[in-house]
Amino acid sequence: MRVGIPQALLFWTYAPLWFTLLKDLGVEPFVSRATTRATLDAGVKLAVEEACLPVKVFFGHCAELAASAEAVFVPRLVSVEPRAYICPKFMGLPDMAGRALGRQVPLLTPLVDLRRGAGGLSAAAAEVAGALGIRRRRAEQALACGLAVQRAVEARWGRGCLPPVALAELGLLPAAGGGDRGPVPGAARRRGRLGVLGHPYNVYDRQVSLDLLARLLAAGWSVETAETIPADECEAGARELPKELFWTMGRRVYGAAAYLMSSGAVEGLIYLASFGCGPDSLVGELVARLAERRGVPFLLLTLDEHTGEAGVWTRVEAFLDLIERREARAPRPG
């Protein structure tokens, strides 16, 4: 059985786990092709106008998979850790995708809810197995393998490997080069270091981000993202807030921003937000205010389906110029 995994939303975060789990359960998982303008247009047609860009992109990938897969993997991600959520839209994602696809293809929609602890993961794995008609015992094993792979990959990020590169190493994305828009190449000649923050599906999707990472790298900047910063540093950074953020990704992003600013590791921060995104509207604001207090150059880029590549890159270049002029005038100590 061929199960399609949309290359969108939390694919960028949890693909190693999902892919390994499905494979070990004996089905044949495969990933949709990288986002293109056509994916986006297809998604826009399927979604309500008010939906955020990432959800539209997700629908575009689902539409592609509906034609080639026997089932599409659309987990219902309520929570991936105690006392936190991801985003209301993830909680309704299977229902939205079901509607958007007109129920043309069966969806595999395990409920992932870890608000009460890690038992939620076993339940999710068991649900997948159950839906596929596979014995529960195999689910536990498959989950253990999946988690091992996921942890190994996350450890790679923590050592500075960008997630798309790690995904390519696992064979989940085509390697860089070739006809496909492959993952971004590794770091480049040092011109300075930037933090590029935002939801992983905004930062790493080359179409959505208008290829920002690759362009920065090609221009000689090295980049840090929320994933390349050790998780415990992010946690510590996020704890500086007077009230804990209850969005897992938002907390990671804020924590990464706080860490990067206080450690002086970057010359500036770029935040990729989705237009109409609830968490981004608040987290982006908090990060912007922090950057202002700390005197770190900050650029907020809000993405939607109308964002033009040229316009964005012009703004980014102006921002980079500003950083370089600033550095030239007042070289940092150290």
Binding site: E50, D95, M96, C277, G278
Partner: peptide, 11 residues
């Protein structure tokens, strides 16, 4: 941009 209502609107 209300997230829950966008989900509801979709279905």
């Amino acid at each position: 941009t209300c997230m829950p209502e966008i989900v509801a609107e979709t279905v």
